[in-house]
Amino acid sequence: MDTLSLNKGEKRDLVFIDTPDLDLHVLQAEDSVLRLFVLDFHSANNILHIDHKAPRCTTEIYHLAFLHGADSVSTHTRMHHEHGEGISRQLIKFVLDDTSKGNFLGELVIKPDAQQVDAQQTNRNILLSKTATMRTRPQLEIYADDVKASHGATTGQLDESALFYMQQRCIAPDDARKMLLRAFIMDIVEKFPESEDLSVTIDRIIEQGQ
């Protein structure tokens, strides 16, 4: 496990691309801002544990897993708000092809002293084949009463009606699928620092899905 502390007021971006076993524990001091980017194209186990050790911390987690073959990614976020006025945003997406597997456990804890916390957790997943599987478990534990906390999880296929609409506008089904997949993942990819450098990788991974 890697433990890392953010000082008072410190802003830090952490980027992990295709890191097979990520076991990270971050302790945040007052007014610190952590942005965590995790991109997986192959099997991985991720534990992302963040503790707000002081008031007014901000954490943003952007995580995308795009898998082919029999790869599997398991991601466990542990977002612990121990102090007040903290903000957390988690956007987590899985795209699963072939017989790949995704597993997301989103633990969000707001301790009794953590008043006026604003926490969001969003998990969206697309299954590209009938044999891919996704398991998602949001787990919210809220012990403070003056907080905003929301979570949402959806798993589905590419929108058939959108595919037909695009075909009716001259676009071949393969190209339509690629456009829809790109649209699905870009809101995460665009958040990455130096996201332009990722575009070749993203193109390749979308192409591979065909």
Partner: peptide, 14 residues
Amino acid sequence: VEIPGVSMVNFLRT
């Protein structure tokens, strides 16, 4: 049909 994430310009030009 609504297509989130695909801009009108990109869609129609394609």
